[in-house]
Design a protein around this nucleic acid. Structure first.
Length: 487
RNA sequence: GGCCCGUUGGUCAAGUGGUUAAGACACCGGCCUUUCACGCCGGUAACAGGGGUUCGAAUCCCCUACGGGUCACCA
């Protein structure tokens, strides 16, 4: 079998979108699975909206996700250049070919004229499409229009009464009639090719074997197939994957929340969670397992397990999956990723020294099981950093009014007196001693301590909290809380 | 509107003519635990509707409904 070559071809008109990332992922998985190549091609022919900033953002996001490419604008490759605006001379040759074969012609219609034609067709109840009024214009007519200062576009002459059949890897056979397609523009009046044309030239020139892209391109495919035929070329395999929808089942957009990869990155989602989640959106593994590393995904991925139907983006499931990775990843790494959020909240210094770093790691370890995203950490670590706090609710305050509480607190304070450092094990032991001393156990002794120290009836393990606060602060909080409850 | 694609629990989804219609998230309940969470165990919940074909349809065909895509000098 010929080596697989896939491409991811974003237009740099904004940050990398969730859907674009998933297309890139599927291409990546297929290529890596079969030892093929991934080509990154920048489709920047929309001069108005394309920007180098977007291009950079897209590449950053792809790298962050771990979706590498083998050829691209940054690293070059044997089929370059990899930005369409740098390939204009290549397209020119193909346009010439089309002219020679009689498949291309100049069109001088203005926007107003086109709009008028459209209205007329609509009025007749016909489908609005370009009917080829400029086809077969004589030299003289053309010269006349040029003299008027009109800049022509190049249109492709669509053969009539053709049935175009596509064998889509995810949808099976799909057929279209060419009569539903008007003569479309392949070169704009400024000499820049349009998408449908450039994509054909580039996919061919770059030796692309499989085109995996979003479903919105399905109805463009017959145009491209016609172009391949006119040029005497063989089309690649196509696979059109379904769209990603928002909660209300319409196409994912800003109002559904974050749509770009970098937003999720900023909110503290881990790249492996994003990749894992995106893979599950439209593809399903064979077994019952759903948590997979990229390598496992590569091993298991296959196009025939890609779903046809669109999928709603389920943030809850992403949060769960992200939580799985937060809990299971190396603490050093998670703490490092959580640090910016702690710094922003004023809980960590700009450059933590070894001692502070140690404390931060312990804090992160104590609360990581609560997190769906790293940014949520600030809500859970307040108890370690805010020395002033109120009781969460009346229920919490009431705990401290129970009759055994004074004895518990006295025992705790006396055990703590003179202790200058204690670790988790020390704290466990100390709590046990307190329990023994007051001859009570369970929530009778531990809940009051928890409330006295944090103001809340829930939270991390007491033996994690106490070492982090230190004996002195524990005593201080106990006294402050007891004073408060006596008021 | 024409053309194209799609429709299994709230969500992601398995399923390719005969299954008690998987699994995951969410939800509910229980266990674990000094609390919450984590973890473990269990539960509620689905084949859009109507016609066919067939001994038998979630699976095949047709129609309807609904959702989406596309019909740009955007990709």
């Amino acid at each position: 079998m010929k080596d697989i070559r896939v491409r991811f071809a974003p237009s740099p008109t904004g940050p990398l979108h969730i859907g674009g990332a998933r297309s890139a992922l599927f291409n990546f998985l297929l290529a890596r699975k079969y030892g093929g190549s991934v080509i990154l091609r920048i489709e920047d022919t929309d001069l108005e909206r394309s920007s180098r900033e977007s291009e950079k953002d897209i590449m950053d996001s792809l790298r962050w996700l771990g979706l590498s490419w083998d050829e691209g604008p940054d690293i070059g490759g044997p089929y370059g250049p990899y930005r369409q605006m740098e390939r204009l001379d290549i397209y020119k040759k193909y346009v010439e070919k089309l002219f020679e074969k009689g498949y291309a012609y100049h069109c001088y219609c203005t926007e107003e004229e086109l709009e008028q034609q459209r209205q007329e067709l609509l009025a007749k109840g016909e489908m609005p499409r370009y009917t080829g009024v400029c086809y077969g214009l004589s030299e003289e007519e053309r010269r006349k229009r040029e003299e008027e200062g009109r800049k022509p576009v190049v249109r492709f002459r669509v053969p009539q009464d053709r049935i175009i059949e596509i064998n889509d890897l995810v949808r099976g056979k799909v057929s279209f009639e060419s009569s539903g397609i008007g003569d479309f523009i392949i070169v704009k009046s400024d000499g820049v090719p349009t998408y449908n044309f450039a994509v054909v030239v580039d996919d061919h020139e770059m030796g692309i074997t499989h085109v995996i892209r979003a479903e919105e391109h399905l109805s463009n495919t017959p145009r491209q197939v016609l172009l391949y035929e006119a040029l005497g070329l063989t089309p690649p395999e196509f696979a059109h994957i379904s769209l990603i929808l928002g909660k209300d089942r319409s196409k994912m957009s800003k109002r559904h929340g974050a749509t770009s990869i970098n937003q999720y990155r900023r909110e503290g989602y881990l790249p492996e969670a994003m990749v894992n989640f995106l893979a599950l959106l439209g593809w399903s593994p064979e077994g019952e397992e759903e948590v997979f590393s990229v390598d496992q995904l590569i091993e298991r991925f296959s196009m025939d397990r890609v779903a046809k139907s669109p999928a709603v983006f389920d943030l809850e499931k992403l949060r769960w999956l992200n939580g799985v990775y937060i809990r299971n990843s190396d603490l050093e790494r998670i703490a490092g990723l959580a640090l910016p959020y702690l710094q922003e909240a004023g809980y960590a210094s700009e450059n933590p020294g070894p001692e502070e770093w140690e404390r931060i790691k312990n804090v992160v370890e104590a609360v990581r099981e609560y997190l769906g995203a790293l940014s949520e950490i600030t809500e859970h670590v307040r108890i370690f950093f805010e020395t002033q706090f109120d009781f969460e609710d009346e229920k919490a305050a009431a705990v401290l009014r129970e009759e055994q509480v004074p004895a518990v607190m006295e025992a705790l304070k006396s055990k703590l007196a003179g202790v200058d450092s204690l670790d988790k094990e020390g704290a466990k032991k100390l709590l046990k001693e307190v329990s023994k001393e007051v001859k009570l156990k369970g929530r009778k002794v531990f809940m009051p301590i928890r409330v006295a120290l944090t103001g809340m009836t829930h939270g991390p393990e007491l033996h994690d909290i106490i070492p982090l606060l230190g004996a002195e602060e524990v005593i201080r909080r106990v006294e402050a809380s007891m004073a408060k409850v006596r008021e």
